[in-house]
Design a protein around this nucleic acid. Structure first.
Lengths: 239, 239
DNA sequence: AAGTGGTCTAGACCACGGC
DNA sequence: CCGTGGTCTAGACCACTTC
């Protein structure tokens, strides 16, 4: 017996064919996309189905629709408010980054952090500390807290090389979906100052993150300290 | 002759009727909404039209649709990354805030800022400076830059009392839609330190915003300095 | 005037969920 | 099983833009 595979809806097929034209460069930003009526004929579907395809592409920001005029490939949009791993951020800027694992310990009682992760106050926590470097200059100090029970063996993994996001997804079937962040400024204490090569008391951007998995569970708490001369946070907000 | 008014589409009417049921509390989070077929009968439209209404309400996050089960009022979502005026932020926290207008001047040449607003480098700029207080303690110093030509008479308006967002909308038909922000940390210079009542060199959260109107035009540049002990930025980001 | 997207009809079959 | 949303048809008229 063949597996029960889901048939791909016609409107999805149309979307994919247009997306492919854009990916392969056959359609560039501003170019007109086939009209609803053309698509209906080409793919032998009704108008409403072709329409559905274009409507969803517009929602995704791939195309823009202009009444009376046509449907056009949208300008490549800047990704705002996108949660990216360190590796992703670096490559997006055309840089290469590296990390140094400073510590990997287990904590017995850290009720504040346990509470942030919705754990009991006596939960054992895994604590990892990484120094982030760009062009061999340190620019961030990040401390990770995870429930020790949920991620056995994590401390022994290749944390220097692989992205934590990738390890969580590959080895623990945990996919990060979103993060809530608190951001403020704080003076560097002596240890942070030394590691980040700034003077003591220098202003650092402090970011406290709680990362959530696709299932909505709090997975991970991150405390990040960023050299303000080498790091700017970009945000877009809406009214 | 009657003016040519746009007729309200049937699917919009359906959306409004459902939104009203929710606003007035007749439907609460989790309650089932009339099904597509019910709505089609009630409003005497075809299934596709009723469907359109529900689909758009889902996109707006008002309802959730579950195949095989029904359409339900969505939980009231927490507003993250919402661009709020000072007044709105204060009242959301149950506090009352006040402002002191420190300066209102016109600048002749400030090419960096003009560039952020997509103006020529010789554009005249209106510069306003406000100190923000919560519970009569200063916590933020904000400097606004606007094209002087676009907002005649703004400097003479009731800037101490009214929200700038409100003035722009009421008197200049300019509605703010979104903002792009750069955030980092910076040490307080002597003037900021004095105004904010912190010691010189204390870490401040610095936020540079460009605010855009609904028409997509850059309207306003804001440089904000926030006392880090009294202000935390909350952000939600997605992968 | 010709072509585009926006709205709408009056049905159809399917996959899924809860009973 | 029955009701739900998901997909789809083969048209229609309208408003808008471009020429």
């Amino acid at each position: 017996m063949a597996k029960a595979r889901k048939p791909i809806p016609a409107y999805k097929t149309i979307q994919n064919s247009i997306a492919k034209l854009i990916r392969t460069g056959k359609l560039k930003a501003g170019d007109p996309v086939s009209s609803e009526r053309e698509l209906a004929k080409i793919h032998d579907v009704s108008l409403m189905t072709a329409r559905h395809a274009l409507m969803e592409l517009e929602r995704e920001g791939v195309v823009e629709r202009k009444r009376g005029s046509g449907t056009f490939v949208a300008l490549p949009k800047i990704q705002f408010n996108r949660l990216m791993s360190f590796t992703e951020q670096m490559s997006a800027r055309g840089l290469t980054g590296s990390s140094r694992l400073l510590q990997a310990t287990t904590l017995d009682s850290e009720p504040d952090i346990a509470a942030r992760l919705n754990l009991g106050s006596d939960a054992r926590l895994l604590r990892l500390e990484r120094l982030r470097l760009a062009a061999s200059e340190p620019f961030a100090l990040e401390t990770y807290f995870l429930p020790a029970d949920g991620f056995p063996g994590l401390a022994r993994k290749s944390l220097e090389r692989d992205s934590l996001f990738a390890i969580l997804q590959r080895d623990y079937a945990t996919k990060i979906a979103h993060a809530d962040e608190e951001i403020d400024a704080t003076p560097a204490d002596s240890r942070s100052a030394e590691l980040l090569k700034v003077s003591k008391g220098a202003p650092l951007l402090r970011m406290r993150q709680v990362l959530y998995s696709t299932s909505g569970k709090a997975v991970l708490h991150v405390l990040g300290l960023y050299r303000s001369d080498r790091h700017t946070l970009m945000i877009r907000r809406f009214r």
